[in-house]
Each structure stands twice: as C-alpha cells, then as structure tokens.
Amino acid sequence: MGGWAIAVHGGAGVDPNLPAERQEEAKRLLARCLDLGISALRSNLPAIDVVELVVRELETDPLFNSGRGSALTEKGTVEMEASIMDGPKRRCGAVSGLTTGVELVDNEYFITEDNVGMLKLAKEANSILFDYRIPTVGLESCGAGAAATESPLQMNGLLISVYAPETVGCVVVDQEGRCAAATSTGGLMNKMTGRIGDSPMIGAGTYACDLCGVSCTGEGEAIIRGTLAREVAAVMEYKGLGLHEAVDYVIKERLDEGKAGLIAVSKNGEVVCGFNTNGMFRGCATEDGFMEVGIWE
C-alpha cells in the first residue's frame, strides 16, 4: 500500500496505419511527460500540481489534440476545453470554448496544417454520416449504406485516420495518497461551434475523490451518457471493487456501443489503463519502479 503512481494518455482510438515514426514520436512525448511528472512527484509536489504540470506539457506539444494541435470546428477555428479535479474535498474547475489559451496567443497559434487537412476529410465523411442539417429520416439508410467508408474502424462516424482522438489527460496519486485528475482537448474534428464534450464535464471525462483519480478519452457522447469517470469511483465506493475490477467493469458494462478509454489511479498507489478501442496512447509509472509506455493492446 502507498507510494505514488502516475498515468498519462494522449487519446483512445488509434489509426492502425499510423506511420511508425509518428508512433515513436507519440511514445517519446508520453515518456517525456511521465518523466516530468515523476520528477515532480519525487520533489513532493501535491498530485493536483503534478497533473496540471503534465497536461500543460501535453497541451504545448502540437502532437496531440489539445492546446496547440487541437482539432478544428466546422468553421476551422479552435475551441478548447479542459477540467481539473482534486480528490481531497473534490474541488474542481473546468473551461470550455477557449480560443486564445492562458497565455493569450492568437487562435491561429493552435491551428496546425495537419488538422486543416483532417478537417476537410472529416467534412466529407460527416456530410454522409451525420450532417445535422439533413433530416434524420435519412440516417438509418446512411448508417448502413456508408459504403464509401467500409472500414470498421470508425469513431463518432469518422474514419479513424481522420478522427483526431488525441485528448490528453493525466491522473496522479502522490505519496500522501491524494488523487487528482486533469483532461484537456480540442474536441471532435468538425464539431459544431459551441459543442461541449466530456472532457470539461466533472464525472464524465474527469473525476477525482478520496478513492481514485480518473481521466477519460474517446467518443465524448458515450462517455457523458455513461458518466464514465464517476462510474469508476462509484463502483469502488458502492460495490467495494478494487481499481482494476472497477475499470474493467466500467469499460465492459458502461459504454454500451461507445468506444473509449481511461486511465485511473487509486489512493493505494495502483494504476490502470483500460480501453475498448483498438489502441490508446498511454504511459504509466509507479513508485516501485514500474514504467510502461504503449499504444496498442
């Protein structure tokens, strides 16, 4: 019992054809962020400071979908959202619809060329799958008849290569058993302006209490319906499950048809990553020397 633990993620649902060098780049970033968090934990920073520090680093790097590198709205702009929660006293804060960031840079700063291309592809895909301006009666036929996109690997109606799943998050338990969680994202590629997803919703994308800290990623609407992050804590609290069992249960039973992943730590220093997507950018480490960075199952 005891000891610190940390996990980071860079989104669930990974393009199986992601070029090897991109995979390596992602792993290097995850490892760097883990190291940053580990150093902070070794210098006795409280969990809440560590998760903020690590997520800031993930936001700053354009690789993942948050801060710089955020997915674009249908209008080609960036609207970022994030939340943070401290287990002790369950204090929490959240923001949505940010366009200029904390350091007040221009919206253009967040827009990468890659994502401009992705938005174009997403628009093409979405115009078939769920353009809300088309009457919904057409939806059933479209869903089945999406012949143009026969790949089974889709998330939120987007081909996985276009989906831009890379929400970032970090969960930490420090040496004193305090848990914290933070999640940050640019949201869904080609989202309507004003759309709020799971990341800033306490209990959905982010949750921390005395027992655990959880950060989720994936299909936002499924995570919201499943109140996914709170669910991990709720089954620990009300059913007495351990962290591993709780994460397994939530991934298996609470997502219905949705696809998502999550990282979680318990006050006892356990750490778990769970997902039902084909992969999740993730890394974790514990005080006793365990460290892992991975993408696939």
């Binding site: 619809g97 769920f130 989202k191 302006t193 004003g194 759309r195 709020i196 936002g220 609407e221 919201i224």
Partner: peptide
C-alpha cells in the same frame, strides 16, 4: 439531443443553432 451528433452546445454556437 435529436438533431445533432452532439449532446451539449453552448453560447454563440448554441444561439446559432437555435436560429438554424
């Protein structure tokens, strides 16, 4: 809930959706 792929719209985007 019924006409968008999303769950939650806010501020200017929600107002624009209302007009639409």
């Amino acid at each position: 809930m019924e006409k968008t792929p999303h769950i939650y719209l806010a501020f200017d985007g929600a107002e624009a959706f209302a007009r639409e």
